[in-house]
């Protein structure tokens, strides 16, 4: 069943023009501002999941921490009944649909040519950990800060965006064996 759904074709459709996709994404963002009065995000949904997890295991510990408390609210509604959690659920569905119709969906591991699978997994995990830490320090990620704040001409978002590109370009040389 799963194998039938995850059907990677021999020749997947080419990617769409990045400028065209950018306009599409920009309009999605604009409609979100118009309807909701807020932008899009991604890392916030993961934070809600973590806060929910910590609160489920040890409520007193979560209550004592201002960071988790900010995502748990007053306790009357589940932290998972959250705008960003629903949005990220949509991202998973949208990505899946696009990949499926383009013939790009299949079980795969994306890595540079000189990297073993286990090392790729290790670096994907470590990279995610570091990135999440930066996201939380900066109060948002590429979606919540760079895209949303970028369009709002938010000063802090532009600082974040410039320093994220600087950080990645500076680090790229040191980790070139991961990708080239």
């Amino acid at each position: 069943m799963l194998r039938a759904i995850l059907n990677k074709r021999e020749n997947p459709d080419p990617y769409w023009n990045p400028y065209l996709c950018g306009i599409g994404l920009g309009l999605v963002l604009l409609i979100t501002f118009l309807v909701m009065g807020r932008g899009i995000g991604a890392s916030g949904a993961m934070t809600s999941m973590v806060a929910f997890g910590v609160d489920s295991i040890t409520p007193s510990h979560a209550e004592a921490n201002e960071f988790y408390k900010g995502y748990l609210g007053d306790g009357t509604v589940s932290p998972l009944k959250d705008w960003l959690v629903f949005e990220v659920l949509g991202v998973l569905i949208g990505g899946f649909i696009s990949g499926l119709f383009a013939g790009r969906s299949s079980k795969k591991i994306e890595k540079g040519p000189n990297l073993t699978t286990s090392r790729r997994f290790l670096f994907a995990f470590i990279g995610g950990m570091i990135m999440a830490f930066g996201t939380k320090l900066a109060r948002g990620c590429t979606s919540g800060q760079a895209l949303t704040g970028g369009a709002l001409m938010n000063a802090g978002s532009w600082v974040f965006m410039i320093s994220l590109f600087a950080g990645a370009y500076l680090m790229a040389w040191f980790v070139r064996r991961l990708w080239i």
Partner: peptide, 18 residues
Amino acid sequence: IGGLVFGVGFIIGGYCPG
């Protein structure tokens, strides 16, 4: 600082959250 840390994690892991 968060941006710099994010960028480093981005190129090591290959993805951003979304």
